[in-house]
């Protein structure tokens, strides 16, 4: 019996190694072409209301994509589904070549287990409109809590990295402040540092400047700009800052009625929109300024 188990164990080890080799080889060949994030025919409904209707969207590695559109067009839902804050009603979301919402079982895609979700979700970080900092923790503690208790980093390691990240967002001197002692812009920069501390490959920004006083918007956008140019990050942002979207994005998607009505480079979309809805939206937004 024991012998049998040992033999079985050896077999399993061997097949695992083999499996690994194959996967590694695949990864190398696929990595260049495979999108970092793929929405495949994703549908989201709230009761009778269809918020997203068969969404197909590929986002390449390190691509910066902005999502714009009128409220209720489903743009925030895209991010929330990717962060697994919302369950999807149809289709599959892929992250880095792996299904996020599903897992492979006997060659079939079945709804993901909590364990699978947590493993794939680790590649994604998110910054929220209302910061959602932990009010009972200081800026630094906000940045080290998850690295310590989720990634298993030592306290020292996490603190060093947390301090470094707070320095990067220009808040090195505020690390012992509680969120309530910070301005909106500072809170949002802590939130960015906190998300980065988990070393995500994909960063989601959900209207991160919408809750800020106008004079604080710049400092947050500057941090995002730095991130985009100095780090290998795939970034997906829902924004109302058209000027920033134009300057920063590789691609802009205009959402309307739960679908991508139009997408293209910033120059195409802002300079020469084809879709009637896009034109209306952009002229309304520009009028408001």
């Amino acid at each position: 019996m024991i012998e049998h188990n040992v033999r079985l164990g050896k077999m399993m080890t061997r097949s695992k190694v083999l499996d690994h080799l194959i996967r590694d080889k695949d990864n190398v060949s696929i990595a260049m072409t495979q999108p970092m994030v793929r929405f495949e025919n994703v549908t989201k409904r709230y009761g009778a209301l269809t918020v997203l209707d068969g969404l197909n969207l590929d986002i390449a590695r390190n691509e910066k994509v902005s999502i714009i559109g009128p409220s209720g067009s489903g743009k925030t839902t895209v991010l929330r589904m990717l962060m697994t804050l919302e369950q999807i009603n149809g289709g599959v979301i892929w992250v880095d070549g792996e299904p996020l919402t599903h897992m492979n079982k006997h060659g079939q895609l079945v709804p993901a287990s909590e364990r699978h979700l947590r493993r794939v979700r680790a590649k994604i970080g998110m910054v929220f409109q209302h910061f959602n900092l932990f009010p009972h923790l200081t800026a630094l503690q906000n940045c080290i809590e998850a690295p310590v208790s989720v990634l298993g980093l030592s306290r020292q390691e996490a603190e060093a990295r947390g301090a470094e990240l707070l320095d990067m967002v220009g808040l090195g001197d505020k690390k012992n402040h509680y969120p309530i002692q910070l301005s909106g812009g500072q809170k949002q920069r802590v939130a960015i540092a906190r998300a980065l501390a988990m070393r995500p490959k994909v960063m989601l920004f959900d209207e991160v400047t919408s809750a800020l006083d106008p004079e604080l918007v710049g400092e947050v956008l500057n941090v995002i700009r730095t991130l985009g140019t100095e780090h290998d990050l795939t970034m997906l942002m829902v924004t109302h800052q058209m000027a920033f979207a134009k300057e920063f994005s590789d691609r802009v998607c205009f959402f309307h009625g739960g679908k991508i009505a139009e997408q293209g480079t910033p120059d195409q979309l802002f300079g020469d929109p084809q879709n009637e809805r896009t034109k209306q939206f952009l002229s309304a937004v520009l009028e408001a300024r």
Binding site: M83, T84, L85, R118, R121, A122, I124, G125, M126, F128, H130, F131, N132, L133, F134, P135, H136, E145, A146, S149, V150, R194, A195, M198
Partner: peptide
Amino acid sequence: VDRGQYEASIALNFSRATMMRRIIVPQ
């Protein structure tokens, strides 16, 4: 406790137990 606290905990990939212990219950 504000829903945003739960969402931030999920985004930071906390297990449910850790989220309750470190984030939700203290508040």
